[in-house]
Every structure is written in structure tokens, then in C-alpha cells.
């Protein structure tokens, strides 16, 4: 188990290096730089000397490959660079924004599970009943409605009919004002969770149907166990393994920042930080943030793999296997 962990963690390094190189190249291949992003068309009014002075200021005066190695050297030492616009170290910016993103992701997944699993179960147990049809219909709506539509509709209904807005640009974090924080995050989390609940519902239903036809379930039933006990003790646990995979994938996605929802609900999360950094051509911030997001996904994949072992006794990472 321990050597498995070490091997997995070591394998992070080449992945992260690859990500950093890819992001470095991609952001520099896009036309425009920090100067045109800040000055807009007024950049055309600059004299050559003025332009050079600004290139020095933004650290763009060295060749790109040198910039990469300078950045890499510092990154290894734990310094991800400095954001001129924010006037802060990239790493502290990321860590400031991350709690919101994490909280929103967890909140959204909890909402998705609360909606998705019971309806999925009911659909499977009462296959082809009116519950099943209604559940599948709801799932289709969830899959078909994009976040920006659900989010905008929620805001419209709340503001026009109830004269409230979850967040008017005055986000409060959980530590300062937990009540306000939960109020502000509920609707964005619901928007994200509603879409994801559809996937959870469908996955729970289909894998439950599959498990219910397996031999061990039939055995349990033939032993005379109550239906409730068969489902709770034997079937559900096995049926949830694919759902765990699904949660892992979604969690990785959400920790990259839910940009659209953050945008609509004015939440200062990791997604908005990264997208704004891209449009402002803040290279160091883009690189730092994408590295962090990649690391998140790697860690979550590892956690999901470890979780499999505890859910399904047939899976084991022990050295003897």
C-alpha cells in the first residue's frame, strides 16, 4: 500500500511538468500580451522606448525559453511568481481563492447526491413505474439545461419576484459570516448540483439495475432476507462504485473552478481568477493556477482509487497482489 502511494505520488511530477510546459506554450502562442491586454488599442500610441520600458516591467523582455526556465527554477523552490495586477504572490492568491471553490464544489456534490441517489434508487427498484419515468424525465432536464441558463433563471426569479439576490458582490467567507456564506453559496451550489444530480441519478439507476440482477443478490433474496436489507446491505454498496468514480471526475472538474457559475453569482473563486488571468495575459498567474488545478485532479484521482479498495474488497493495492 505504502509503495503504491509513493509510486503514484512520484508519477505526479512528469504530469505536472508536462502541464506547465503545455500551459506556458499555449498562453504565449495566443496573440496579445499583458501590455495590449492592459492598454487595449491605446497600446498603439506607445513609442518604442515606452514599449520596451513596459516589457521590462512585465518581465517580457527576455526570450520565451528563458522565461520558462526562470519560472520553472522558481516554481521548484515553491515560488510561483507574482501578480502585478493583484500586487500579491501567485501562491497566496490561489490559496485565498481556493476555500470558496472547495466549499462550492463540496456543497454542489452534496446537493447532487441528496437529489440523485434516492431518485436513482427508486427508479431502479420500481423500474418502468411512474416514479421511474418521472425520475428519468427530471434527469433529462438536468442534463439538457446548461448552468448559465439555470443560474440566470434563478437570479431572475429571485430578483424580480422576491426582490433578493444571493450575492450582490459582497461575498463573505465562512469564517467571517457562516450564515451569510451559506446563503450566498446555496443557489450557485444548487445550480451546479442540479446538473450533476442528473448524472448521479442515471448512474445510480443503471448500476443498481445491474447489481439487482447479480447472483449474490439473488442468493441474499433466496435466503429470505427482507428486500430493504438486501438493497441496503448488499446491492447499494456495490451499485455506488461507479457513482464514486463519477464524483471523482466531477470534483476534479469543480475544483478547477466553476467559471460560469462564479461569473453569474459574482463569486471570487479559482475559476474567475484563472479566466481573468488569461484575458489579462497574466502569465505567471495562469501558469500557477493551472498547475494547482492539475495537482487537484491528480490528488482526487488517487483518492478515488483508494476509496475503491475500501468499497469493493476485490480491489486491493497491497504489494502482495
Amino acid at each position: 500500500m505504502f509503495s503504491y502511494l509513493v509510486k503514484r505520488i512520484l508519477s505526479f511530477l512528469p504530469t505536472l511538468l508536462g502541464v506547465s510546459l503545455l500551459v506556458f506554450l499555449a498562453i504565449r502562442l495566443v496573440p496579445g500580451d499583458a501590455i495590449t491586454a492592459t492598454l487595449g488599442t491605446e497600446a498603439g500610441m506607445l513609442t518604442d522606448v515606452q514599449r520596451q520600458a513596459l516589457e521590462r516591467y512585465y518581465g517580457l523582455d527576455k526570450p520565451a525559453w528563458q522565461q520558462y526556465f526562470i519560472w520553472l527554477g522558481e516554481a521548484i523552490k515553491g515560488n510561483l511568481g507574482f501578480s502585478i495586477r493583484h500586487g500579491k504572490a501567485v501562491s497566496s492568491l490561489i490559496l485565498e481563492r481556493f476555500p470558496l471553490t472547495l466549499e462550492l464544489a463540496l456543497f454542489a456534490i452534496i446537493i447532487a447526491l441528496i437529489i440523485g441517489i434516492p431518485i436513482g434508487l427508486l427508479s431502479a427498484i420500481k423500474q418502468n413505474s411512474i416514479f421511474d419515468i418521472a425520475g428519468r424525465f427530471l434527469a433529462l432536464i438536468g442534463l439538457a439545461m446548461p448552468n448559465f441558463l439555470v443560474g440566470t433563471l434563478i437570479i431572475f426569479v429571485l430578483s424580480v419576484y422576491f426582490r433578493i439576490l444571493p450575492n450582490a458582490g459582497d461575498y463573505a467567507d465562512f469564517a467571517t459570516n457562516p450564515l451569510k456564506n451559506v446563503q450566498q453559496l446555496f443557489f450557485p451550489a444548487f445550480t451546479l448540483g442540479f446538473a450533476f444530480s442528473a448524472s448521479v441519478m442515471r448512474m445510480t439507476r443503471s448500476s443498481m439495475l445491474e447489481v439487482l440482477n447479480e447472483d449474490f443478490v439473488r442468493t441474499a433474496r433466496s435466503k429470505g432476507l427482507a428486500n430493504r436489507r438486501v438493497i441496503n446491505r448488499h446491492a447499494l454498496r456495490n451499485a455506488l462504485i461507479p457513482v464514486v468514480t463519477l464524483i471523482g471526475v466531477e470534483m476534479g472538474y469543480l475544483l478547477g473552478g466553476a467559471f460560469i457559475v462564479e461569473q453569474i453569482f459574482a463569486l471570487p473563486g479559482l475559476g474567475r481568477l484563472t479566466i481573468n488571468a488569461v484575458s489579462q495575459r497574466e502569465y505567471a498567474l495562469v501558469q500557477g493556477a493551472s498547475l494547482f488545478i492539475a495537482l487537484n485532479i491528480l490528488v482526487i484521482n488517487l483518492l478515488v482509487d483508494l476509496l475503491y479498495a475500501s468499497l469493493d474488497p476485490r480491489i486491493s493495492y497491497d504489494d502482495s497482489n
Binding site: 440566470t152 431572475f156 430578483s159 450582490a168 459582497d170
Partner: peptide, 20 residues
């Protein structure tokens, strides 16, 4: 207090709701 609300329809909503 100048706040950034990136989506302008949300700004309109905040005005209607009397929050700004």
C-alpha cells in the same frame, strides 16, 4: 464601496433587489 459583479444582468437584479 465599489463592487465587481461580472454579469450585468446580475447587476440589474441587485438594483431591483435594492442591494446596491
Amino acid at each position: 464601496e465599489m463592487r465587481v459583479i461580472p454579469d450585468e444582468t446580475s447587476i440589474v437584479a441587485a438594483l431591483r433587489a435594492g442591494q446596491i
